[in-house]
Write a protein that binds this DNA or RNA. Structure first.
Lengths: 169, 169
DNA sequence: AACAAGAGGTTCGAATTTGAACAACCAGGT
DNA sequence: ACCTGGTTGTTCAAATTCGAACCTCTTGTT
């Protein structure tokens, strides 16, 4: 396999830009959120999903699907949120194994208090830095990138058959 | 402060796309690299910087600047690389406090072996998923995003005075 | 009804990350 | 020569992450 297609300058710029933006934005938001609201980004995302759901309750598994952590990671974070009284665990009525994460009143208040600052930070770090057309390109292009790496067989169709494989052409 | 500018649908799509792409790509490459070469992404990046430098040696501090980990994180990772014999520590001639990380022959070989697979994975996950124009937009836009969050006073000028601040209003 | 296959969550240990504290050292002015 | 302030790299404890092992329970099949 002599022929590796290395990255040319433009490709390298895109890759490096992606990497740097990724880690800087992530770190920045993590800090902002922890300082202003005492939440990790993961915890904030959990609260958002719960707040968006009817009755503020979501099954653990469903929570894990939209989320970017492993099963055990979710267990841990929900545990932390439970300690602080922002979330309660309740057993699922339709499946004895199931566990529902339920948003408490205090959890909802905490989220309400944290949201404005977080949105402002997201704007300042990413959204408001992009031009209108860049915004759309980023949404479309990165959306495609994320979707292609989505694990198969969950949610609404991947729609893209061209999977990613480690076959060396 | 009643007026929070929430994210509209397009902005939300961009933000979510960015988040998902970020975490999926990161996780995917991490696994690919660990499976194929037994390296973490952080370790791979360290080897790359060393290989690019004259004599394959870089000062710890300089290494940390281009890199996306904390000082202590770097100490740890270089320690791991040293254990495997891919890197050596040498004291800096011009500054007694300083430590040089030096690429060993074995380290260079390991990198050479790992690079093609990694580049292929980067292509498959990101680069080849983007159209030409998308590639350029991503490079320019995300480059700007990353640069704005770059800590001040290192490297070649940020050129952008409009810093990011947590001032309300 | 009994069974195999698998889903749902938690628990465990190992690896990694982070910021703060630390010790040693350079640089500039006095 | 002597402080003062800032740098350099490491060490430390605490928090977090991951995958694998593990039980309990559901589901589809026979």
């Amino acid at each position: 396999m002599a022929g590796t297609r290395w990255l040319d300058e433009r490709e390298m710029a895109a890759w490096h830009g992606f990497l740097e933006a990724t880690s800087r934005v992530s770190r920045h938001l993590e800090q902002q959120l922890k300082e202003d609201a005492g939440l990790s980004h993961a915890q904030y995302e959990i609260l958002v999903r719960l707040a968006d759901a009817p009755d503020g309750e979501v099954r653990m598994t469903d929570l894990a699907h939209g989320l970017f952590t492993s099963k055990s990671g979710l267990t841990y974070q929900v545990g932390q949120l439970e300690k602080r009284g922002l979330v309660e665990r309740r057993s699922c009525p339709t499946d004895v194994r199931g566990v529902l994460a339920v948003l408490t009143t205090e959890g909802r208040d905490t989220l309400r208090a944290a949201a404005p600052g977080h949105v402002a930070a997201v704007r300042a770090a990413l959204i408001d830095v992009l031009e209108q057309d860049e915004l759309d390109v980023v949404a479309r292009a990165l959306g495609r990138v994320g979707a292609r790496l989505r694990p198969p067989g969950q949610g609404i169709g991947n729609s893209d058959s061209g999977g990613i494989s480690t076959s060396s052409s």
